[in-house]
Structures are given as C-alpha cells and as structure tokens.
Simulated scan of single mutants.
Amino acid sequence: MTIPIGVPRWRGRAALAALCAVFVVCWSSGFVGAKLGAQGVDVRTVLMWRLLPLAAGLLLLTGIRHRATRRRADPPARLTRSQLLRQVGIGALSQSGYLLTVYWAIGLGVSTGTTALIDGVQPLVVAALAGPLLGAAVSGRQWLGLGLGLGGVLLVTWADATSPRTDAPAWAYAVPPIGMLCLVAATFLERRDPSAPRPLRNLTIHCTTSAVVFTALALAGGAARVPAEPRFWVATAWLIVLPTFGGYGLYWLLLERVGVTTVNSLMFLVPPVTTAWGAALFGEPVTALTVAGLALALTATWLAAVRPDRPARGTGTAPAPATSRRPAVRSRV
C-alpha cells in the first residue's frame, strides 16, 4: 500500500508551522516571566538568580563540548582575546543593559505588550542605520517602515500611559527605548566580527558576563538574597526554560530550517502575542488605540522586510557582505 506523496509534505509543513508557533509563544513568554518575577522582589535579585544557574549550566556544557572537540583531528580555532572582549561587550549590551531596562520598566508598571513592541522596532532601527554604519543600501521602503513603526510605538505607548489602569510614572516609558538601543549597538558590534558565529560559546560568554554584572549590582545594592516566595522560583524556572532554552534554542533551529528572513518575520508577531499574554494574565489594558498601533507596527515591519542578500532595486549595489547577513542580535528576555 503506497502513501500519498502529499501527506508527508503536509506533515512536514504542519510540524514546521507548529515549531514557528511555539517559538513565538516561548519568546513572548519572557516578558510575562519578567512581570511574574518582579512582583514584590527587587529587579536585581530576579536577574541575579536567573543568570547565575544559567551561566553555571552553560559553562559546564561548554566545558564538556570543548573536551570532546579537542579529540577531533581538526579542532576549532581557539578563542582569541579580541574575540572574547567583543563577546563580553555584546553580552553586556544585549543581555545586561537590555534585561535591566526591560525588567525595570515592567517593574515600574509599563505593560508587557508595550515593552515588547518597543523591543520589536529594533530591526527597523538597525535597517535604517545600516547605511551610515555598515555602508549597506537602505531603501525608501525601509525608511518608511521605520517612520510607521515609530508611529505605532507612540500610539501603543500613549494608550498604555493614559489608561486608568496604568500606574507607571510617565518617565518609566523612556526606560525600554534605552534597552532597545543597547540591542542595536550589540547588533552592529556583532556584525563587525569577522569570525564565524559560535552560538553555544557566545551564549555562554554573554550569560556569564551578565551573571557577573547582576551579582555585582545585587551585592552593591543589598539585593543579593534568597527569596522565600514560591512564586519567585516558579518565575525563575519559567524564565530559564521557556524564553532562554525554548525561545533561543528554537531561534537557531529555525534559522537552519527556514532562514534568517522568515525568523525575523516571526519576531514581529511577538508584540501582539505578548499583549494578549498581558491582557489575559495581568489585566493589562488593550484599547482600540492599542490595536491600531500594533497594526501600524506590523505594517511597518512588512514594508521594511527586504531580503538581506538582495540589493535595493535601482541602486546597482552589490549584495551586502557576509558579516552583514548575520541574524540580528536578539534579546533573551
């Protein structure tokens, strides 16, 4: 009995679609976990206990893998001092600076959906700055997308800030953009790295750097304690399992399966999914203005979504170099 040829293909596509859906849910869950952990606990305490066990586990895993690769006939090149310093800088920006601002903003009362949307315009800012900083061609669609994306962010932020259910001070809405700019800086620092990407090694350096930074901040501020609240440890486990291993692991898996363009497109679904999480779990406000802002931001990202290896039409510019076609640095919220 033969199996219709369309069935395996359909199953493969369904499985890939399911992976994409799980990836979006896992990535957006990081903002939810941040709010769960920051309720009644100092942000520095949350970040210290999230990063310490994660960094320890990654150091152990990297050590085991390094020992195994040393037995090969062609072991990978050793990590140079300049490469180490570059990855420490990327980790300090993309994790330490970014996570501190996200957790701080959410702890102050900024909604999870608004924070995720401000994070979500990072690729638009990177695309707009690629011309002056990387010498890449920037199309008019990308500039238009940036303008519309910023308009969408302003609409959602205004709806959140003026809602009667919001208790965040006005200045708190200036905190998430600082974290987004940290991600932008980390992206350009990473794209200037001529060496081949090493996801596990780089993630280990980033997490170890952040563990040191957050432990130092907690010790300096008297926040280095062991919380007794069970909810805190549930939130910590949530943050380690779902957004870090689930989201980041699926991120690299999908990069191999569908490519960077599709994965970046999936990232644009994170803000609306996070908004739904926040409304369902925390009663965060969702108004017509919120929906309009999210729709405007999604339209903006669609306009700006051009193939990274295709020059803008009519420019006569050659494809961008390989270093600029790396996936953008993404937050592990």
Rank of each mutant, 00 (worst) to 15 (best):
Val184Thr: 10
Arg81Ser: 08
Ala168Ile: 11
Arg330Leu: 15
Val153Met: 06
Leu298Pro: 00
Gly278Arg: 05
Leu266Ala: 13
Ala304Asp: 09
Met267Thr: 10
Arg310Met: 09
Ala223Ser: 13
Thr162Ala: 03
Phe282Met: 12
Thr315Leu: 00
Ala322Glu: 11
Gly259Ala: 07
Lys35Gln: 02
Val329Cys: 04
Gly247Arg: 15
Leu36Asn: 13
Ala55Tyr: 11
Tyr98Pro: 10
Leu183Ser: 01
Lys35Phe: 03
Thr45Trp: 02
Leu99Thr: 02
Pro308Trp: 04
Val22Gln: 07
Gly57Asn: 09
Thr45Gly: 04
Val175Ile: 01
Trp143Ile: 15
Thr287Pro: 03
Ala55Trp: 11
Pro177Cys: 02
Ser265Met: 13
Asn202Ile: 15
Thr2Gly: 08
Pro271Cys: 08
Ser324Phe: 07
Thr2Arg: 14
Met1His: 11
Ala137Pro: 09
Leu298Met: 12
Pro123Lys: 05
Gln142Ala: 04
Ile240His: 03
Val43Gly: 06
Val138Lys: 00
Leu217Ala: 06
Thr166Phe: 00
Phe214Cys: 01
Ser29Pro: 00
Gly6Tyr: 06
Gln39Leu: 05
Tyr173Thr: 07
Ser163Ala: 14
Ala228Asp: 11
Pro176Lys: 07
Leu303Asp: 06
Val156Ala: 02
Gly314Asp: 05
Val329Ala: 10
Arg198Thr: 11
Arg81Glu: 07
Val291Phe: 06
Asn264His: 08
Ala279Val: 15
Trp252Gln: 10
Leu93Glu: 10
Ala288Pro: 00
Ala224Lys: 07
Tyr251Trp: 05
Gly314Met: 01
Ile90Ala: 02
Pro230Phe: 07
Tyr251Gly: 06
Glu256Val: 07
Leu281Arg: 14
Leu155Cys: 06
Leu51Val: 08
Gly40Ile: 05
Arg313Asp: 13
Phe23Val: 10
Trp277Glu: 04
Gly40Cys: 08
Val241Thr: 05
Val260Met: 07
Trp233Phe: 03
Pro76Glu: 05
Arg50Ser: 03
Ala128Glu: 03
Pro311Ile: 08
Thr275Ser: 03
Ser195Ala: 11
Leu146Asn: 03
Tyr173Met: 06
Gly259Pro: 05
Thr301Asp: 08
Val138Arg: 00
Ala220Met: 08
Pro76Ser: 08
Ala186Asn: 01
Thr209Phe: 00
Phe188Pro: 07
Val263Gly: 09
Leu253Pro: 02
Pro230Val: 07
Trp238Pro: 00
Ala235Met: 01
Gly120His: 10
Arg9Met: 07
Thr45Phe: 08
Pro75Met: 06
Arg257Asn: 11
Ile118Val: 15
Ala68Trp: 11
